[in-house]
Amino acid sequence: MRPAPRSFAHPGGLHNQTPKRVVFGPGSVAGLRDEVARLGASRALVVTTPGRTELGDRLAGEIGDACAGLLPEAVSQVPIELARRGRDKAESMDADCLVAVGGGAATGLCKGIAYESGLPIIAVPTTYSGSEMTGYCGMTIDGVKRMHESQAMRASTVVYDAELSLGLPAAVSAASALNALAHCIDVVPLSSVSPLILPAAIEGARVITATLPRLLADPSSLWARNEMLYGAYLGGAALTGGFALQHAVAHMLGGSFGVEHGIAHAVVLPYVTAVLVERAPAPLARVAEAVGTDDLAGFVWDLVHDVGLPVTLADVGLDASDRARAIEISVSADDHSDDAFLHPDTHDQNRAGNPVPVTGDVVAEIIDAAAAGERPRRRR
Rank of each mutant, 00 (worst) to 15 (best):
R58W: 07
R58Q: 13
R58C: 02
L59R: 10
A60N: 03
A60M: 08
G61C: 04
E62T: 14
E62D: 14
E62I: 10
I63N: 02
I63T: 13
G64V: 06
G64F: 01
G64A: 13
A66V: 05
A66W: 01
C67K: 01
C67Y: 00
C67P: 00
A68G: 08
A68V: 07
G69T: 08
G69V: 05
G69L: 02
L71V: 11
P72N: 13
P72I: 08
P72G: 11
P72H: 14
E73R: 14
A74M: 06
A74E: 03
A74Q: 11
A74L: 07
A74I: 12
V75K: 09
S76K: 10
S76N: 10
S76Y: 01
Q77F: 06
Q77E: 15
V78T: 15
V78N: 13
I80F: 06
I80G: 03
E81N: 12
L82G: 04
L82H: 10
A83W: 03
A83Y: 05
R84D: 13
R84C: 04
R84V: 15
R85G: 10
G86L: 02
R87Q: 15
D88I: 08
D88V: 13
A90C: 04
D94W: 01
A95V: 07
D96G: 06
C97L: 09
C97P: 11
L98N: 07
V99Y: 01
V99E: 04
V101K: 04
G102A: 09
G102P: 07
G103V: 02
T107A: 05
C110W: 03
C110H: 11
K111P: 03
G112I: 05
G112P: 05
G112A: 15
G112Q: 04
I113G: 01
I113H: 01
I113M: 05
Y115G: 09
Y115L: 15
E116R: 15
E116F: 07
L119G: 06
P120W: 01
I122N: 09
I122W: 01
I122V: 15
V124R: 09
P125G: 03
P125V: 08
P125N: 09
T126H: 06
T127V: 12
T127P: 08
T127C: 11
G130E: 00
G130M: 03
S131N: 09
E132K: 05
M133P: 12
Y136D: 03
C137G: 15
C137V: 12
M139Q: 12
M139K: 12
T140E: 04
T140P: 02
T140Y: 00
D142I: 08
V144G: 12
K145I: 04
